[in-house]
Amino acid sequence: MSEVLALDKVEKGFSVGGHRVEPLRGASITVARGDYVSIVGPSGSGKSTLLHVLGCLERPDRGVVRVEGTETSSLSDEALSTFRGRVLGFVFQRFHLVDRMSALRNVAMPLDYRDDLTLREKTERSQHALSQVGLDSHAEHRPRQLSGGQQQRVAIARALAVRPRILLLDEPTGNLDPETGASVMRIIETLQGQEPDLAVILVTHDMDLAARATFSYRLEQGQLRRVPPVGEGIR
């Protein structure tokens, strides 16, 4: 197995109202290139904390996070930010688009911090990413001129423009109606088929959505437990 991301006995906690909360208590998972993984759990189970640790947005209190063979604890905050921006793509439930910017500019935003790319390369990457989600004709539209599904497709394009090794999806259909949500997931799954080395990690509470993944895990009591494959359902 060609490992692209791994957590080894990761612990993460924080204080809320004077009380210690520990959403991750020895969580471990290994993801290989090309894997399509879903992680489910009820509200409050720690899925957001897990996603932040998986995406190197937060450091664990204990344990090891390894991405592309690099132990992230060895990186300074600045180096980690640069590393994250070149390896990981994020798609959130809330689209997080900047309304004053065109779709193309929104897609290009993560590339603004890349000093290894020319302006032309950044523009070409952004245009290609929009075409991948079928929105090349909407490049100059602003978010308010787009439907919810189109806004989420722009958010997907923004993640793809990075050309990530790992795509992290945080309830990507949560703000969409079922039909639009299914359409968005088909786009993501088609894109992964075109990029066989791309690992996709879906964090969701939607059991039907989770069942589309090749491998599924449940987050409970701070740990990740493998659950039956798609054909056997997730219960």
Score class of each variant (00 low, 15 high):
R33W: 06
R33D: 13
R33S: 12
G34K: 06
D35L: 04
D35S: 06
V37E: 00
S38V: 07
S38F: 03
S38H: 07
I39E: 00
I39R: 01
V40E: 08
G41K: 01
G41A: 03
G41N: 04
P42Q: 10
S43D: 06
G44T: 08
S48E: 00
T49Y: 04
L51S: 00
L51W: 05
L51F: 04
V53P: 01
L54M: 05
L54A: 05
L57V: 09
E58M: 08
R62E: 13
R66I: 10
E68I: 13
T70R: 12
T72Y: 11
S73C: 10
S73E: 12
S74C: 09
L75C: 08
L75E: 08
S76Y: 10
S76K: 06
D77A: 15
D77S: 14
E78T: 14
E78D: 14
L80V: 06
L80W: 04
S81R: 10
T82Y: 14
F83L: 06
R84M: 06
V87N: 10
G89E: 05
G89W: 08
V91M: 05
F92W: 11
Q93P: 02
Q93N: 03
R94L: 12
R94E: 15
F95V: 09
H96Y: 11
M101W: 10
S102C: 01
A103C: 05
L104G: 06
R105P: 02
N106D: 03
V107E: 04
A108P: 11
A108W: 14
A108Q: 14
L111G: 02
D112Y: 15
D112G: 11
R114N: 08
D115A: 13
D116I: 01
R120N: 10
R120M: 11
R120A: 15
E121Q: 15
K122T: 10
K122A: 07
T123P: 10
H128E: 15
H128V: 12
S131V: 03
G134F: 01
G134L: 00
L135I: 07
S137R: 15
H138Q: 13
E140C: 12
E140P: 09
P143Q: 04
R144F: 13
Q145S: 11
Q145G: 02
S147I: 03
G149E: 08
Q151F: 09
Q152K: 00
Q152W: 07
Q152R: 02
Q152T: 01
R153G: 02
R153C: 03
A157T: 00
A159E: 07
A161K: 01
V162Q: 03
P164Y: 07
